[in-house]
Simulated scan of single mutants.
Amino acid sequence: MRILVVNPNTSLGVTRRIDLAAQAAAQPGEVVQTVPAAFGPELIVTPEDSALAMQGVLAAVEQNHHGMDAIVLASFGDTGLDQVRAQTGKPVIGIAQAALTRALEHGPRFSIVSFSPSVQGSLRAIVAHYGLLDHLADVTVLQDSIWTDPGAIHTELAEPLLRLCQQRAKTGGIDSIVLGGGPLAGLARGFAPHVSLPLVDGTTAAIESVRRMVTGARDSAPT
């Protein structure tokens, strides 16, 4: 199976982080190709960012989807999801949809942990989009976080993000924690031994989801 992973922002550092997480989730024989949006913002925060990023995603998909079996959109806004499905006719999933679905497998209540107040509203909005606000306990974010580059969020904010996950798990009232945002791809694997609740990584969940989608389509195809 060949999987195209599109980072809807243009940060090469974030794209590398997403690729590492996607490659780690791939099984033997699966080929993962990760690309950034063809153009657009380095980080998607506002609705205006999302609108511009969607056009960059569609251009990147058009350039790279031929020969691919499935597509993952690796921003937590699932940027361009419906449009890419219509454009390609292939199995497509966004990391938010995949992560929220995986969180509910652990139980009915989850929290989202992320890196900045600037993304808090958009994280709640995507949960609302999927009709899951009743399952969302809260969106917990770092306050006054500073980073040098979107691709550096993964390393520069790792320690405070881990502490935030630990604190949120200790507070209770939830069954899992979703790490919200493409720049956090892969952190769950390293955090997991130090946090008392299941952690959900959107990129990992998305790779596993498209695997099931492609396998299911092949199994149901007429012979």
Rank of each mutant, 00 (worst) to 15 (best):
G77Y: 06
L162S: 02
S114V: 11
A217L: 10
I207T: 10
I126Y: 03
D219K: 10
L157K: 00
A188L: 03
F110K: 09
A205Y: 03
R85K: 15
R109H: 13
W147N: 01
A22V: 12
S196V: 09
A99C: 09
R85D: 03
G181F: 08
D69T: 13
V61D: 05
E105C: 12
R212M: 13
G190F: 01
N64Y: 06
H129Y: 11
T223W: 09
L52A: 10
Q87W: 12
L142K: 00
P8L: 02
A158M: 01
T148P: 10
E30T: 09
I95C: 07
R124H: 15
L164C: 13
E105Y: 08
K170Q: 15
G13E: 00
S114E: 00
R168E: 13
H66I: 15
R168Q: 15
A158D: 01
R85Q: 13
L161K: 03
A53H: 01
R212C: 05
T215E: 15
Q97Y: 12
V31P: 00
P222H: 03
A137L: 06
V14H: 01
S145F: 05
G181N: 03
Q83G: 03
L73I: 12
D219W: 10
L164V: 12
T101L: 14
R189E: 06
Q55N: 12
Q63V: 11
G77L: 01
G67F: 07
L73G: 06
R102A: 14
V35W: 03
L104P: 06
R211P: 08
R109V: 13
P41F: 08
P108W: 14
Q143N: 11
D219R: 12
H154G: 00
T10P: 11
P47K: 08
R17W: 00
R109Q: 12
D134T: 14
Q167P: 05
A21L: 05
W147L: 01
A169D: 10
S75M: 00
G121Q: 07
S11K: 09
A26E: 07
Y130N: 05
D175C: 11
L73P: 09
P47H: 08
G216V: 08
A206L: 02
D144R: 06
Q120W: 01
P222V: 13
E105K: 05
S111V: 15
R212S: 10
S220H: 11
V45T: 14
H135W: 04
R218G: 05
H194I: 13
V5N: 00
Q83P: 05
V92F: 08
G131I: 15
L123N: 07
R85C: 09
D49L: 03
H135Q: 14
T88H: 12
E42C: 09
L12I: 10
G77F: 04
M213F: 13
L184D: 03
I112L: 06
S145D: 02
L4P: 08
